[in-house]
Design a protein around this nucleic acid. Sequence first.
RNA 1: GCCGAGGUGGCGGAAUGGCAGACGCAGUAGACUCAAAAUCUACCGAUCGCAAGGUCAUGAGGGUUCAAGUCCCUCCCUCGGCACCA
Length: 811
Amino acid sequence: MFFMNYDFKKIEKKWQEQWAEAGIYAANDNSAKPKYYALIEFPYPSGDGLHVGHIRSTTAMDIISRKRRMEGYNVLFPIGWDAFGLPTENYAIKTGIQPAIVTRQNTDVFRKQLKALGFSFDWKREINTTDPNYYKWTQWMFLRFFEKGLAYKARMPINWCPKDKIGLANEEVVGGKCERCGTPVEQREREQWMLKITAYADKLLEGLKHVDFLPEIKRQQEHWIGRSEGFKIGFKLDGLGVLGTAVEIFTTRLDTIFGATFVAVSAETAKKWLEAGWESPDEIKKYIEQVLAERKNAGFEATEKSGIFSGVQAVNPVNGETVPVWITNYVLGGVGTGAVMGVPAHDERDFEFAKKYNLPIRAVVGPSSGLVFADRPFVQDGFLHHSGTFTGMSSAEAIPAISKALEARREVRYRLRDWVFSRQRYWGEPIPLIYCEKCGWIPVPEKDLPITLPEVKDYKPRDDGQSPLASVEEWVEVKCPKCGGLARRETDTMPNWAGSSWYFIGYLMTENLKSREPISEQIKSEEVQNKLKRWLPVDWYNGGMEHVTLHLLYSRFWNQFLHDEGLVPVSEPYRKRTAHGLILAAGGVKMSKSKGNVVRPDDLIAEFGADAMRVYEMFMGPFNQAIAWDEHGILGTYRFLERVFRLATQEKNPTTLQTELARLLELTVKKVGEDIESLSFNTAVSAMMILINKIQAAGGMPRDSWKTFLLILAPFAPHLTEELWEKFSGEGSVHLHPWPAFDEQALAAALVKIVVQINGKIKTRLSVPAGLVEAEITQLALADPVIVVQLKEATVRRIVFVPDRLINIVV
RNA sequence: GCCGAGGUGGCGGAAUGGCAGACGCAGUAGACUCAAAAUCUACCGAUCGCAAGGUCAUGAGGGUUCAAGUCCCUCCCUCGGCACCA
């Protein structure tokens, strides 16, 4: 061994080529080893190229994949492109260049950049959602939903920019205004394809119990689904004239019904009464119109509560009491029955309303100790008071009892809405349906899939809100597959979420995607089913917190459906899901092209190398927290790697290992292994830095110890460690060598430092053999000169002793 | 407004209730050098003190404890999510 420079450029290029040639990261479909499926959210290949945030999250999963390989797993760590979407389309609108060409250019750049970072992807399994071979399957799967009645057409409001005359995706609406021109966005009704995800609401909730997702991820999904169990109850009306029957209210808090002091109905409900012939003063009519108009315009923001007394009275069925009916703006027509019982003592909104209009507040539920109404509503469950025969019951007992007495109808409601699956856009999967005047909506026969995107001149959505595909007459006009008559293709395309809803399955059968065999036969074949059984579920899926509600829910739904169809062996696609923090631009704002603050990694990689870049991004801060980008620190990780290289290749490394260094090495092996599992990469790097600093001070380390160290550094800095491993004539690749075990016994130190406190303040430290008992330490502590001086005039009242750590003398 | 995460040196950040500031960046001094870079060594929260040492410090204020950045209560601020879901 002789001194040499850390020539990362040469080293990184050399090993990237050798790994590719040897195929050491390819997942094996026929291995006897246990499988491990590690997944990242596949990137959208934007024109900006890879940015520093991609590197952080991808390096993390790369580290986990590499560690698993070393632990003896057959690892699948795939990569692909989620390439349909607006930025590419907008670029095409501006330049007229075909989105397919832009996509190819962008993916070429991304692929090159990812390869330069040494990620251990199985590149043979690369997929692209815009590849007709891929979206043929997406279209086929959509038709399965259609055949099961889970895809349907409905009139839905879309965001419409009146100036640009186009429909906007939600992402293009910022604060109720068009992202490009700033014009306030209007809601327009349009026929849209919908997927009935609500049919899977309970299954999606139930499935969460069996997966290992971060608690906050589960909570967000639960909240998004928003299951609530309630009851519908009729309140008889008095004063609506001939209409005077009943108003139906919905509540989840039947136990508070004795506290109802009014009934609040939505403007929509009141309007229906008017249409049915209710005669009411102009004042009320005006108010109703005003609320409806406000709702249309505001849409997004909550307005101040208001209401008007309708003149109508309602009868509370539980006690026959008469309460006033108010028409309000805070009860929504589309939610529940569009009417609620107002219980100000036990509901924040009713309380606010009652305060404003001086309506009575009657508390009927409280903690067991007694019923105290403070200046805020009591919204928890409790015990009933002033509630007739139900007084004294707990909320949990009272709800079924009251519902039985009233014969109330129980109803389960969800916040979750069905998935709007249509986009009036070009750059997405065409929806493979044909409309025939005679036969209705007819699916495209499987032999005609994929329906590929036709070339168009202009990619801009049309003035009438239709997709540009509607202008391609020769594409739109087809024969009805059923009757042979003249029919028209659906011109809407699928949303971005479609292709990403099943891509983790796509990776498992990339060869089959290319095949011309019918999908319905292929997917049920033993060959494909065996692959799916081998790899599913994904063992660890990491991605952004921003995808935790939509993408994660959609893909779970999609997979559960395929499972119910008998096409996929597992009902939950992801066993474990974690999330990373965003990398923000300097100043803590999001990086975006429009702000011009996107940081590209290329220059830094050229200057410090891929390994230094990887280690730095892991070292920056806690992985699960957002962090502002600052490249100054990369010099520190470069110095660390350079130091590793220099010390490991120095002329003479000692042949024996000092006891303390040996112990530190064991500790570091343990800590790095544990920190990787808990995504604490920053402290793992720090631990390795501490070790290297100690090695520097000790003048070096024997070869075998170096090899152990290389093994734990390997997932972080794969090129450098592979190079040194070769120089140390290690067997094969460092990345396929077993992960080192650590010796618990070697971790124990012979000497420990004991902190001596007086009244909790540190006074001195004792260096003593490990394992001394309280009496021995007390004796030593009290004899210490510093302590003797401090205790001169005090009496010891108490001694607190923590073995091998601390003694506190209380005086 | 509600839910969640967070607030620690000049900066990024460490810390199973038990030595606050690990590790790194920036900075200061020294060694090496003709010199510089690189590297190595030491120092590096504030404050009082010649020093030994003391005092104050983890957003603010209370509390529990022998001991609190960590647990409890009240409040302030930042970020993310949701927006009247009955």
